[in-house]
Computed example of a mutant assay.
Amino acid sequence: MISRNRTPSRYVYYGLHLYFSGLSLRKASERLSQMYKRNHVSIWNWIQKYRPQKLKASRRRILEYIVDETMLKVGSEYIWLWVAIEPANRQILALSISKERNMFVAERYLSNLIKVHGKHPVSTDGGTWYPMACQFLKLDHHIHSSYEKSVIERTMQYIKDRTESFDDYFPCRIKNCKLKHVRNWLRLFVDYHNNEIKHVN
């Protein structure tokens, strides 16, 4: 999982588990050190070095895409985070970031989604950028049911809870940053989240 790391992989994974469960880096290192002594810098380095695989087509039958977007603060600017999940197993199917939110960005996001997972109905919160994007891509579109709304809102809140302190640990001072470090962090988050969901299921 992480090359050139003398720490046994099971402790690396547990350290990441503690962090993504909501603990700070220091609190995570304190818990981990009860079994294997490592400081918070070690966990920070594991997050930096971790290279999760790209999202692949789901082997399970996909009923539909539940899609939503939310705003995140990175450095001195705000970006849009786009998320698609599958309602049955709640795994994240695709995640993307953009500096704008409009029909063209939504169309590009959904287009990349169906390239990996195929065409399926799309459920959204009624944002005006979705219906035209779905129409252009010939995707069935409907507004969230109460269950779909509950599932996506819980997922989005979980993501936002873990990104609130993003700049505390991953500060970016590069002018006109391409946000590569943000994408790497989010790929790690998705990889961890989906593996945890698989384990629970």
Rank of each mutant, 00 (worst) to 15 (best):
residue 1 M to D: 12
residue 5 N to P: 06
residue 7 T to Q: 07
residue 12 V to L: 07
residue 13 Y to I: 15
residue 18 L to N: 05
residue 18 L to I: 01
residue 20 F to W: 14
residue 21 S to I: 06
residue 21 S to W: 15
residue 24 S to W: 01
residue 24 S to M: 02
residue 27 K to S: 12
residue 30 E to T: 09
residue 34 Q to K: 15
residue 36 Y to S: 03
residue 36 Y to W: 06
residue 39 N to A: 03
residue 40 H to Y: 10
residue 42 S to W: 05
residue 42 S to T: 15
residue 42 S to L: 06
residue 45 N to Q: 14
residue 46 W to G: 04
residue 51 R to W: 09
residue 54 K to F: 13
residue 57 A to I: 14
residue 60 R to F: 12
residue 62 I to L: 05
residue 65 Y to W: 06
residue 70 T to G: 05
residue 74 V to N: 01
residue 75 G to I: 02
residue 77 E to I: 07
residue 79 I to R: 05
residue 80 W to N: 02
residue 81 L to D: 03
residue 84 A to E: 04
residue 86 E to G: 05
residue 87 P to A: 00
residue 88 A to L: 11
residue 90 R to I: 03
residue 91 Q to P: 06
residue 92 I to M: 09
residue 94 A to Y: 10
residue 94 A to G: 10
residue 97 I to Y: 01
residue 98 S to R: 01
residue 100 E to L: 12
residue 101 R to K: 07
residue 104 F to R: 09
residue 106 A to T: 07
residue 106 A to P: 04
residue 107 E to L: 09
residue 109 Y to F: 09
residue 110 L to G: 01
residue 114 I to N: 06
residue 115 K to M: 15
residue 115 K to T: 12
residue 121 P to G: 02
residue 124 T to K: 00
residue 125 D to T: 03
residue 127 G to H: 15
residue 128 T to A: 10
residue 133 A to D: 01
residue 144 H to I: 10
residue 147 Y to D: 14
residue 149 K to C: 11
residue 151 V to E: 12
residue 151 V to N: 10
residue 151 V to P: 06
residue 153 E to T: 13
residue 153 E to Y: 04
residue 154 R to I: 05
residue 154 R to F: 05
residue 158 Y to I: 12
residue 158 Y to L: 11
residue 161 D to Q: 14
residue 164 E to W: 13
residue 165 S to G: 07
residue 166 F to A: 05
residue 167 D to G: 06
residue 168 D to E: 14
residue 168 D to W: 08
residue 172 C to E: 10
residue 172 C to G: 12
residue 173 R to N: 14
residue 178 K to F: 11
residue 181 H to M: 11
residue 182 V to P: 06
residue 183 R to M: 05
residue 183 R to V: 11
residue 184 N to F: 09
residue 184 N to Q: 14
residue 199 H to W: 12
residue 200 V to N: 09
